[in-house]
């Protein structure tokens, strides 16, 4: 009798574990990431191409480590928690809907697998020749070709939408981004952007957007 009871318990334990595994959903991170990305697509586009009208930048092809780091920052309020950053506030809430760190990883994995999409110029008044000269200061971290450097936590920026580059530089300059505890890399960018004037920001945006993404 006791043995039979033990058998029942073992069976129940195995069934429970199997059930728990089944509840986890598909194990392939790409499938899980694609499912999670359904939440992102309304703003960032089905292929991560971005929607300027919604202030959602192109994110397709960004490296996984960078997407993860930014999602983590949004989740802890290190980014997107400034009252004047309406786009960041939206992203913060969406990042918080990811139930666990593992979901951050799978969605970042999926985003990094999407193709990089070129964006049409939308910021007027920027001079990419002047921007190229000003870019010398950025090249030490982001690379001469804008390919980024993971060792320095510098993301690839070549070919990023000009409006997004301009907005983020202005946000860094004004302390809307990079001023919260928990955003050490943002603080570096804030220090770099603080001396830029409006024209330099436009010039840099024009140059960065014109660089081909490798």
């Amino acid at each position: 009798m006791r043995n039979r009871l033990e058998g029942v318990w073992q069976f129940a334990a195995v069934a429970l574990l199997l059930g728990a595994v089944a509840c986890e959903g598909p194990s392939d991170p790409m499938v899980r990431g694609a499912a999670r990305y359904d939440q992102c697509a309304p703003c960032h586009g089905a292929k991560g191409e971005g929607k300027p009208a919604l202030a959602a930048p192109p994110i397709g092809g960004l490296p996984r480590w960078y997407v993860e780091a930014q999602l983590d920052k949004f989740r802890i309020g290190a980014r997107g928690a400034h009252l004047e950053d309406s786009a960041g506030l939206r992203m913060r809430t969406m990042a918080l809907t990811l139930p666990a760190e593992r979901e951050v990883q799978v969605v970042a994995h999926y985003v990094s697998s999407l193709p990089h999409a070129a964006s049409a110029p939308s910021v007027s008044g920027g001079d990419s020749t002047r921007g190229k000269a000003a870019y010398a200061a950025c090249a030490s971290c982001h690379g001469v070709d804008g390919a980024g450097n993971p060792q320095l936590n510098a993301p690839p920026i070549a070919g990023q939408a000009d409006w997004y580059v301009a907005t983020q530089l202005a946000n860094f300059k004004r302390g809307i981004r990079g001023a919260k505890p928990g955003d050490a890399t943002g603080a570096t960018m804030k220090a770099m952007a603080v001396g830029l004037d409006e024209q330099q920001i436009k010039d840099l945006a024009a140059w960065v957007a014109s660089m081909p993404r490798g």
Partner: peptide
């Protein structure tokens, strides 16, 4: 009370 997508401030 300020409402905006998708936060209260």
């Amino acid at each position: 009370v300020v409402s905006q997508q998708w936060s209260w401030s």
